[in-house]
């Protein structure tokens, strides 16, 4: 896949950082404001997809990135499961038990384990969207090479 013009590249470079920060903001404030892990994760993925589209990439490199993102996806789901199963082992022996202190309403560090779940799911969603995007684009690239 070829990259686009230098103007697009520069703008994408500048914008993707801001988009990334916005996505992270949405994810970590999931327990306080509307939005949350899914919306934030999609925004995060958007930043990466913008970069890939603007700069272009070789198929070999795209494959490596796909492997990386799918492993990230699996690892973050496993981490979520471990977090949920930890409630089964400690405290009140209940799956998905919220065993962390709750804190005060409205603060960033509050609501027990919910922000942790939000962050992990955010990473998972971002990685999943990137994996889907890469899988489709690799398929298209291989078609064109033939």
């Amino acid at each position: 896949m070829k990259g686009l013009t230098p103007i697009v590249k520069k703008v994408a470079q500048l914008m993707s950082g801001i988009i990334c920060i916005y996505g992270i903001y949405i994810v970590v404030h999931g327990h306080l404001t509307p939005g949350g892990a899914f919306a934030g994760g999609i925004i995060l993925a958007g930043a990466f997809i913008l970069l890939i589209l603007a700069f272009g990439s070789e198929v070999v490199k795209l494959r490596k990135e796909e492997t990386g993102s799918s492993v990230t996806e699996s690892l973050s789901i496993l981490a979520t499961l471990i977090l949920a199963t930890a409630g089964l082992l400690i405290g009140s022996k209940v799956f998905f038990n919220d065993y962390l202190p709750k804190g005060t309403v409205g603060e960033l560090v509050s609501a027990g384990a919910v922000p942790l779940y939000n962050i992990l799911i955010g990473i998972e969603v971002a990685a999943a969207i990137i994996t889907i995007f890469l899988a489709l684009i690799i398929f298209k690239e291989e078609e064109e090479q033939r």
């Binding site: 899914f38 969603v125 889907i132 899988a135 489709l136 398929f139 298209k140």
Partner: peptide, 18 residues
């Protein structure tokens, strides 16, 4: 349901281009 819908659409489109 939107998340599930996303997965379904992705699957459908992937199969369609195949």
């Amino acid at each position: 349901a939107i998340v599930i819908g996303l997965a379904t659409s992705a699957m459908l489109l992937a199969i369609a281009i195949r």
